[in-house]
Design a binder for these strands. Structure first.
Length: 613
RNA sequence: GCGCCGGUGGCUCAGCUUGGAUAGAGCAGCGGCUUCCUAAGCCGCCUGUCGUGGGUUCAAAUCCCACCCGGCGCGCCA
């Protein structure tokens, strides 16, 4: 059978047809040897062999045992006369494995067609109509966002993008805790003029009586100034704490209009939103925690639990439930729901919030710091106790600390995202000026912003969420190696090359990217680097699907880096423009495809694919 | 003390979900590459008891157990 005529159909995942075909053929051949196996099961066993040993590998140890033979004999027997068909260039047995080599030209054609025809859709799945809510970031509106908290946003936003790419209908939510102790403390201190603040709060904030926000200062930076002092005061001073409680109580009773109470948190939130937007993070909905108190749903939840057989009263009058039968550590078997004064605790309001989410969405995902793991289990137990069959899903990440220790606003040991982004911008601008003195100021600024914010986002994303990060300035601001600028640079090179092709010979470029990209059959054998790049490009769709399924969002940062590596190596080794004329169409198509995949993968991590830098 | 999560070259990390063939990158170090598509690049060299010890298996960085180290948590905070 000729293997030179590539299939004309377009596949979202170029690997799907050969995998399925190989699995089917194997199923038939294994059946001849008394092994009845579903093709899907065989496909699940197909793995990647080591470099240079082919493209698909099937370990035969387990099945050889079942067939009472040794793996190598089985592999050799299967390799014997295995049909190559449209997809394969070779099949060989090796040490108990059966290795399949894909027909390079088939893989090249299939990949180029998929990438160039599907374009921005390459890697994405069609809509599946499933409604998902991803709640992330949800920082207390008490001041500036620090780098640790921003990990939540970066990881969460990437997960949102991955789920969307996988076809989900995703709503990204930010839960605004305006009524908890922390936000209430800030509302309380700003409810008085500065000259009425306790002296220690005022001096700690560095504000004198009658101070006003300096021109251009972000609202979260300004309004957050008294927070460390005020929160310390409230922790130590019973009278101050009492004032905060009363403020909350009055708000809950409707004696303070929501608009008025929320003024400070809302303005802080505006600052937070601006910072998050700078790293590409946007939300569909902001849900105010106090809403669940004001609309009565918290009361309903409390009534429900109070009436349940698990309810109990603590000394002092607080309401709790006995959750001994639920999967919780022993000490948490009793879950406290209210304070002694009857006011609701966070977890109760969270129950109300989740009841609403579960009613609206098919899947509910919470992106939380690892310190919330136990809270989440408590919440899940309460939801179950409340008779809810479905459960929210938890996505956690570990903390970001500083070399000196844990970040602490109170100890002044904290790096804010604003400061980090500013420093990144400044350093990036320096680099741009150095490397491209020819660019005008506006473009240099624009590139610096993109490179700087990209580097920061990339740095915090590229590590498996479960791992703790020790933040170091030099690493966060690295513009080479495993970093966003490395990827952006590869993209800029590809864009530049295509720009030149467009300028010098637009007809040839259009021809190369026509409906049969690269104009197969090829004039000869591809370079190794061409095939390596193509193989990397072909893996993108299955990667996106895997990330959406597992939440391994760091792989989405690692992948474009791998594409950039392959592209840079190729670019260095093979001359495209002015090289071998017969190869020009294919190579232009390959560069265009690499650029497209870089764009698509960078889009998923909200890093701008620069055309020049 | 109990629970959850991490521990892979000097440093920072992939790989662990679903065990598979010589454990991959980046940074740092050393040595090369620019009359030619952007050198934020490329090529080469150097660096590993995969925390420790047991177990399961034809096969363990990957699964199980114990221990060590680090992070996080363990009711009137969120």
């Amino acid at each position: 059978m000729s293997a030179t005529a590539p299939s004309e159909s377009i596949h979202r995942d170029p690997w799907a047809p050969p995998r399925q075909w190989v699995a089917r053929e194997l199923s038939v051949r294994l059946a001849h040897r008394g092994l009845t196996l579903d093709p899907a099961a065989i496909e699940g066993e197909l793995a990647s062999p080591p470099e240079g040993m082919g493209d698909l590998a099937l370990p035969l140890f387990r099945w050889a045992k079942q067939a009472k033979t040794d793996p190598n004999t089985l592999a050799t027997a299967l390799a014997e006369g295995f049909p190559l068909g449209e997809y394969l260039a070779g099949v060989e047995a090796s040490r108990g494995f059966l290795n399949f080599r894909l027909q390079p030209e088939w893989l090249a054609a299939a990949t180029l067609r998929s990438v160039l025809v599907l374009a921005q859709e390459y890697g994405r799945s069609p809509p599946n109509q499933r409604r998902v809510c991803v709640e992330h970031t949800s920082t207390n509106p008490t001041g500036l966002l620090h780098v640790g908290r921003s990990r939540n946003g970066i990881v969460g936003d990437t997960y949102v993008r991955a789920l969307r790419a996988a076809g989900y209908d995703v709503t990204a939510q930010f839960y605004v805790d305006d009524i908890g102790r922390q936000a209430a403390t800030l509302v309380w201190i700003w409810s008085k003029p500065i000259d009425q603040w306790p002296e220690e709060v005022r001096s700690r904030a560095g504000l004198s009586a009658g101070a006003v926000a300096p021109e251009g200062m972000k609202s979260d930076a300004w309004l957050g100034k008294p927070y460390p002092g005020a929160s310390e005061l409230v922790a130590q001073d019973a009278a101050a704490a009492q004032e905060v409680s009363q403020l909350v109580a009055r708000f809950e009773r409707g004696e303070i209009p929501a608009d008025e109470y929320r003024r400070v948190p809302r303005e802080v939130l505006e600052g937070t939103k601006a910072t998050l937007a700078r790293v590409g993070i946007r939300f569909d909905e902001f849900v105010w925690e106090s809403e669940f108190v004001l609309d009565g749903s918290v009361s309903k939840v409390l009534e429900l639990f109070a009436a349940s057989p698990h309810a109990r009263r603590e000394e002092g009058g607080a309401l709790a439930v006995d959750a001994s039968g639920w999967d919780l550590p022993k000490k948490e078997a009793v879950i406290l729901l209210t304070r002694s004064d009857g006011s609701s605790l966070y977890v109760v309001r969270d129950v109300a919030y989740h009841l609403q989410k579960l009613a609206r969405f098919e899947r509910v995902i919470d992106v939380l710091g690892e310190d919330h793991k136990l809270h989440f289990r408590t919440l899940s137990a309460l939801l179950e106790m409340a008779g809810v069959a479905r459960k929210p899903e938890l996505f956690t990440y570990s903390f970001v600390s500083l070399p000196e220790g844990k970040m602490s606003t109170r100890a002044g040991r904290v790096v804010t995202l604003d400061d980090l982004l500013e420093e990144a911008h400044v350093r990036a601008l320096e680099e741009v000026r150095k490397r491209r003195p020819d660019l005008d100021a506006a473009e240099a600024e624009r590139i610096a912003e993109s490179v700087g914010t990209g580097a920061v986002r990339y740095h915090l994303l590229a590590i498996q969420p479960d791992k703790p990060i020790t933040f170091r300035w030099e690493e966060a601001l690295s513009f080479e190696g495993r970093s966003a600028p490395f990827v952006q640079y590869a993209h800029a090179r590809a864009a530049s090359l295509l720009r030149r092709a467009q300028e010098s010979n637009p007809a040839e470029l259009a021809h190369a990217l026509a409906e049969r990209p690269g104009l197969f059959p090829l004039p000869g054998t591809m370079e190794d680097r061409e095939l390596a790049l193509l193989k990397t490009l072909s893996r993108f769709p299955s990667l996106v699907a895997r990330v959406a399924e597992t939440g391994a969002v760091h792989l989405l940062a690692l992948y474009p880096h791998e594409v950039a590596e392959r592209l840079n190596e190729y670019y260095q080794a093979v001359r495209v423009l002015g090289g071998e004329p017969n190869w020009l169409p294919f190579r232009l198509a390959l560069i265009a495809a690499a650029r497209q995949v870089l764009r698509n993968s960078l889009e998923l991590i909200a890093i701008e694919p620069l055309d020049r830098m």
